[in-house]
């Protein structure tokens, strides 16, 4: 398991040309379609299709995971709307439309899953990007929690300091500088300029 992950990483690195926006697997597929229809263009920077195929497994590829995720969502919706009326005297009830949509979604999920098992699509690389995803969303969530109570300045600092932890190019000191600049700029534009009703600092300061 660790071995295959290691290989995936190496494969990914091998096809990431520095300074060029690396291609997601989806782009790889698009690139293939493009090549087919328009002749080879910029193929050098695209991830060759075989690299993706090589990584794909029957149990975990973009189609099977998408299928499972959609089924899970559909079940969640069906479970949560179970108490709503599905039929009404005239027309349809509040529960009809959600269950209809969820049913369709579940059907698509099953088809995708089966498709993924029979013919594995591009591989899923769960871990790739998980760190920035978690840090950036955590930063945004912190902003949301801090703004009403503590004010704009602490919220901006929290957001910038947490979110930039995902970026190797930004030291904590640099992040503080960026946060300070942004805090001043947003205070000027949004509070002084647009008069949005934000508190700038906690009440006790």
């Amino acid at each position: 398991m660790t071995n295959s992950k290691e290989r995936q990483r190496r494969l990914h690195d091998a096809y990431t040309v520095p300074g060029v926006r690396p291609q997601s697997t989806q782009r790889g597929e698009r690139a293939k379609a493009l090549e087919g229809e328009q002749g080879a263009t910029a193929a050098a920077v695209r991830v060759p299709e075989f690299a993706i195929r090589a990584k794909a497994t029957r149990s975990s590829n973009t189609d099977t995971v998408a299928g499972l995720a959609l089924c899970a969502l559909a079940l969640l919706v069906l479970y949560n709307t179970r108490s709503l009326e599905r039929t009404a005297l005239m027309g349809i009830g509040p529960g009809t439309f959600p269950s209809l949509v969820a049913g369709l979604l579940a059907a698509i999920g099953v088809v995708l899953f089966v498709k993924g098992v029979i013919r594995p699509a591009a591989a899923m690389a769960f871990a790739e990007g998980l760190r920035p995803a978690l840090l950036v969303t955590a930063g945004v969530a912190l902003f949301a929690l801090l703004l009403p109570g503590l004010g704009l300045v602490p919220a901006v600092f929290a957001l910038v300091l947490v979110a930039t932890r995902s970026s190797s190019g930004i030291s904590l000191r640099l992040a503080c500088v960026i946060a300070a600049i942004l805090a001043v700029a947003t205070a000027l534009v949004f509070v002084a300029g647009l008069a949005l009703p934000f508190r700038l600092l906690p009440l006790w300061i």
Binding site: S166, S168, G169
Partner: peptide, 15 residues
């Protein structure tokens, strides 16, 4: 937000 995340992810945090 998702665009920022995927940019960071695909460039190992450099952007």
């Amino acid at each position: 937000v998702a665009e920022i995340v995927s940019n960071l992810a695909s460039t190992a945090g450099h952007g």
